[in-house]
Design a protein around this nucleic acid. Structure first.
Lengths: 113, 113
DNA sequence: AGTATATGTCGTAAAATTGCGACATAATAT
DNA sequence: ATATTATGTCGCAATTTTACGACATATACT
């Protein structure tokens, strides 16, 4: 039923990135990983108001676009940010939004149009 | 069932912005509005592979966060970007992501961690 | 070997999003 | 006044997302 596939790949691509970032739990995970000095394993679940399973699913979403990585160490898994990827995404979003910003509309009486 | 409300307001806020940007139709609308010299009304529907009603719903989403505005002129409505708002959002996203970028993790053997 | 702990996988219910047709409204044209 | 055109509103079906419990697996510990 979704018609997402009918749009330009660029738009699909950008939208997919925004989508991963569109849930507070995933943002909370990113923030937590950026704040802990060490790449803490799944006790992320303790820091977030969701069950372990739910947190795990969000981790999977973040891993899908390589925003985080997990290194298995014994029984535990150390998750950590892929800062390089994060920077790349930020740049990508910036370029995209900057491009839209170059608006030369002029018909509305709205101040900033 | 959603537990979104349990997260920090800042995170909810950021996630909500990302969510609006997480559908290619909405990005296509923004792009189209930025490209047309004039703020074209609802014939946006012709430029997008969705029914008029569906496009309208996406317009509503964009209006909710004041990213676009509609000026009624007779029977028509001229939609246009709120460039000022777009710039503000971009800045906001940037600050948020930049903050996360300041990662000082050091446990993983992953290069960019 | 047997147990405990940490992850990962699956199925499923609840909720939200997407997409659209049918109808309502409101301004213009004849 | 009536017809036309452009928007806006509602309700509904299909799909996707969210959230979690139950079970599987795999490593360490005694």
């Amino acid at each position: 039923m979704t018609k997402v596939a009918l749009f330009d790949e660029e738009l699909q691509d950008m939208a997919a990135i925004f989508k991963v970032l569109s849930h507070p739990a995933r943002l909370a995970i990113l923030k937590y990983l950026s704040e802990t000095k060490v790449c803490i394993s799944g006790d992320i679940s303790d820091k977030i108001p969701l069950s372990r399973t739910s947190v795990y699913q969000h981790l999977v979403e973040l891993k899908k676009i390589d925003l985080i990585r997990g290194e298995i160490v014994g029984v535990k898994t150390n998750y950590c940010l892929n800062v390089e990827k994060l920077k790349m995404l930020k740049e990508k979003l910036n370029l995209f939004l900057a491009d839209i910003e170059k608006c030369n509309n002029n018909c509305c009486d709205i101040k900033n149009c």
